[in-house]
Simulated scan of single mutants.
Amino acid sequence: MRTGGIGGVIILIWLIIGAVAAGQRGYFNSSNDNCAKAGTTVVTVLAGPLNYLGVNPKVNCKVPQPSQ
């Protein structure tokens, strides 16, 4: 039984579909200069085919600033 191999292929296809969706949204065209853009790109890739079912994940994050 090679269920591990089949599962790995399914996960790989899932992530490829997510990367295609992120590319179509233009997330790879600009630099990810803050955590919100980078996080949104990562979550979009992880959402995979769900992007084509209407899921549009967004990440909002604020990095704490050092005290003065």
Rank of each mutant, 00 (worst) to 15 (best):
S31G: 13
N29F: 11
T41R: 03
T40L: 00
V63Q: 13
K37A: 11
C61G: 13
A36M: 05
S30K: 12
R25T: 06
G5M: 06
P49R: 12
G54V: 04
N34L: 06
P49V: 06
K58A: 14
N51M: 11
T44N: 03
D33A: 15
Q24P: 09
L53I: 10
N56D: 14
C61E: 09
I6Y: 15
N56W: 13
V45F: 02
V42Y: 01
N56S: 13
V55L: 15
T41Y: 03
V42F: 03
I13N: 00
K37Y: 14
V59S: 00
Y52H: 04
G26K: 08
R2F: 12
T40E: 01
I6F: 09
Q65E: 10
P66H: 02
F28D: 10
I17L: 10
P49G: 09
S67I: 06
G18V: 05
A47Q: 04
I10A: 09
V45T: 04
K37F: 06
A21E: 03
V63Y: 09
I6D: 11
S31H: 12
V55R: 13
N29W: 13
G7Q: 09
A21T: 04
P66G: 02
R25D: 07
N29L: 10
P66N: 05
W14C: 00
G54K: 04
G18H: 07
Q24D: 11
A38W: 06
A38Y: 05
R25C: 04
G39T: 01
Q68F: 14
N34A: 11
G39C: 00
P64S: 08
T40M: 02
N34V: 10
R25K: 13
G7I: 11
V43I: 07
G5C: 05
Y52D: 05
N29D: 07
L12M: 11
L15P: 03
K62E: 05
G4R: 13
G8Q: 03
T44Q: 00
V42M: 11
S30T: 11
V42P: 00
A47E: 02
V63A: 11
N32L: 08
V9P: 11
L50C: 04
S67K: 12
Y52L: 04
V59I: 08
L46G: 01
G7T: 10
K62S: 12
N56C: 15
M1E: 15
Q68M: 14
R25E: 07
T3S: 14
V20H: 04
Y27S: 07
I13Q: 00
P49I: 14
A36I: 03
N60D: 15
I13A: 02
A36W: 02
Q24I: 10
W14E: 01
V59T: 04
L15M: 13
G18R: 01
G26D: 05
T40S: 02
A38K: 05
V20Q: 06
C35A: 12
Q65M: 12
Y27E: 08
